[in-house]
């Protein structure tokens, strides 16, 4: 007996929302990316807890895939950030408003 299942899920949702708030309120592209990483991590935590609850290894397998997705996302995302910084000299997300309708 560790803790109730709901407590772990609550921790996961707190983490997820912290990441979401970070992504939304920060203007720095790097911080937005960090927020995404936190959210992915929170999803992983929920998966691990569910895997333990139902005694199925599938949950852990999915965490592995989340890691893969996070790694490639960070690689491409950071490359994009470097690229756009080279183009505009800024990391402010709101400077990229060329899609304004």
């Amino acid at each position: 007996m560790i803790v109730p299942y709901g407590n772990v899920l609550l921790l996961a949702i707190i983490l997820f929302l912290l990441g979401a708030v970070c992504s939304i309120s920060r203007r720095n592209l790097l911080m937005i990316l960090i927020g995404v990483e936190i959210m992915l991590n929170a999803a992983g935590l929920a998966f691990v807890a569910a895997s333990l609850k139902w005694r199925l290894l599938d949950g852990q397998a999915f965490v592995l895939f989340i890691f893969a997705v996070a790694a490639s996302e960070v690689a491409v995302g950071l490359a994009l950030i470097v690229y756009s910084q080279r183009r505009t000299g800024s990391l402010n997300a709101d400077q990229y408003n060329q899609m304004k309708g």
């Binding site: 996070a70 790694a71 950030i81 470097v82 997300a93 709101d94």
Partner: peptide, 21 residues
């Protein structure tokens, strides 16, 4: 390890105003 170190590298390479108010 990897992801955060990657971030550190980028923070050190990219010298730009962060755009935070």
């Amino acid at each position: 390890g990897a992801i955060m170190v990657l971030f550190l590298f980028i923070v050190m390479t990219v010298r730009a105003e962060s755009g935070e108010d």
